[in-house]
Design a protein around this nucleic acid. Structure first.
Lengths: 194, 194, 194, 194
DNA sequence: TATGAATGAGCTTTCATTCAT
DNA sequence: GATGAATGAAAGCTCATTCAT
């Protein structure tokens, strides 16, 4: 892991735990094992560390999702795997969960305010992925002819809800619940079998 | 409007726009038309203003939702009205939308950290409401026998997704989209008609 | 002395001794007997403290010069008194001397760079004063018909030179020297007596 | 130009424009085309670069003045040429002008504070030169029997005033003004002709 | 000899909180 | 109750200097 990555890892650690303003560069530097001045060799300022770090962890996550999309599976299997990757990944990693829940909205509003919506495209990835899966399912006749955009948003929203639940009741989330959840989501899109 | 309310209104205004840390008590006091010291007569500290203000706006919103719940309607009509109240209210009020999107998660994580989960019950209200509506639908035979908890979460998540979309593309959100959205949500729970 | 003046006095003390950048607001606040934050109640930022403080001491000095100008004296006497006020005042006050020597040029270049030349008019006061005295002398027939502007500049330059000498050899500057100096300056402008 | 000179040239460039504290060694090294560490092979620290650079440009300038002193001219011609060298040189080179106006005083106070007055002798050169010219004039009967030291200081001061005027009103300074100025300075020392 | 990545002391500035009035 | 002047801890950021290469 090079120095830039060390810094981003440290940053993510504090940002996810305390949010942007309550995270001190002093702590991030110490945790990363570098001098405070070193941060400024790799990043322009605190916001730059924040944005690049969020994007960094997001990109790693998106990679995993992209892999699923490329698999040679039918739409139902793919959607199931996709939910696995999303929920399992997130709920096995409190940091990612907190980022998703608090920092992403904060991050988007920040970008929105400063008109730097470029990086926001990372956020649209999930929407795009789900659109692709649903389209595949419709074309292959597996899925009902639902409105892709709206359905994608419903699924994303449900993932987020699930994550939020996890953060506050992580003990009560179990494999059985998750199976039930997946079954319902699949039920939303799959054609009824007579 | 008494002084405490004036302060909370001012607070909401800044918190929703700039978040907790970027909102200055100086501005809040000025906007509320009271002295800075006065804030401390009504609230313990900044966080107390934050928590009470979020709760305040939330409660007013919950009241509206409670009204719907009490109406003498069948489950489908009630769910539709409930979505109306949620989406219409939120998307006609950017402040509320931003609170929902950014401050609520932040707020919950804050409470979670400081072990003051008491106020969090306000957040469970929507879950409870939806549970009630779905239960009514199931009992009356209108709705399929879905898992209430999971379905409630899916619906809440979809509302949140919808709000986020609104914040970033408020121009593109139209009545037609909303109708389609409602039809789909209702489709999730209603029994098929032969 | 009110708080703003206390701060400016403290500021002048450090700025004259160490220059702008080597003067710490921490020290200025401590010396002034106020909290660091208090500086920002009375001034916008460090540069504002600097500019206002320089202007402050300059203005007090200009007042003294203005008094001389208003005296009912002939031009020779007035010029002599003017040199007294300039040299005596400066050389009895190392702070003023250092301000004149280092901070004023620095100050002017700063203003020049930031295009805020408004306050520079304070610097033109001496030029104006001398122009007035010389004009009076010419009109009354006491002085030769010299070029006022150039002569005023020569006199100002000579004062500055004198001050610089003082800073580095304050021990060697004596009353006798000063008398000689004044005689020469007066000799530059006064008509020869047959 | 060797590396040391390259560095001093770069240094002068920044010091004259921004002063000591606002000039970054980073920029100086880059401008000089050497590594930042290299600065420390040739100089002890930033102040050393500053002092040696000022001295360097000063020495080059003094050389020019020395040449005039050595010329086989009468005192009046020499003084005129001396003013030419001073004013023309300075006012054709904003860098030199700014050094003279701001950095020299700063430089001298710095040296004075750290008791390293050795290099200050460079500053006395002009005084010495003028003393020599005036002495020559007095001895040859061209000049009045003025106090050399004081007269030298008056002339130096007038040059400085002239330079300051130039920096702020460089457009308005013209050949005609300069001629008038020289005539007056010469008038100060030359014997009246019946 | 030459480098530039790395450092951390030191700076300015902000702002929640206090308290005398 | 109501105020706002005063505070100082805490933060982000800069940059002269070092040192492994």
């Amino acid at each position: 892991m090079n120095k830039k990555e060390k810094i981003m890892n440290a940053a993510i650690n504090f940002f996810s735990e305390n949010g942007f303003d309550k995270s001190a560069l002093d702590d991030i530097a110490k945790y990363a094992g570098v001098g405070k001045g070193t941060l400024y060799l790799y990043f322009k300022d605190k916001e730059d560390i924040y944005i690049k770090s969020i994007k960094y962890i997001f990109d790693k996550w998106i990679e995993k999702m992209d892999e699923v999309i490329k698999l040679d599976l039918n739409a139902s299997e793919k959607l199931e795997r996709y939910l696995d990757v999303n929920i399992k990944q997130i709920t096995s990693n409190m940091t990612l969960a907190k980022i998703l829940m608090r920092e992403i909205p904060n991050f988007l509003l920040k970008l929105h305010k400063s008109n730097k919506m470029g990086p926001m495209k990372i956020y649209k990835k999930r929407e795009k992925h789900l659109n692709m899966i649903i389209e595949q399912g419709i074309n292959s006749g597996e899925f009902k002819n639902v409105n892709k955009g709206i359905m994608a948003n419903i699924i994303i929203g449900s993932i987020n809800s699930y994550v939020m639940k996890y953060i506050f009741h992580s003990d009560k989330i179990c494999e059985k619940d998750f199976k039930e959840y997946k079954k319902i989501i699949l039920g939303l899109v799959k054609k009824e079998v007579k």
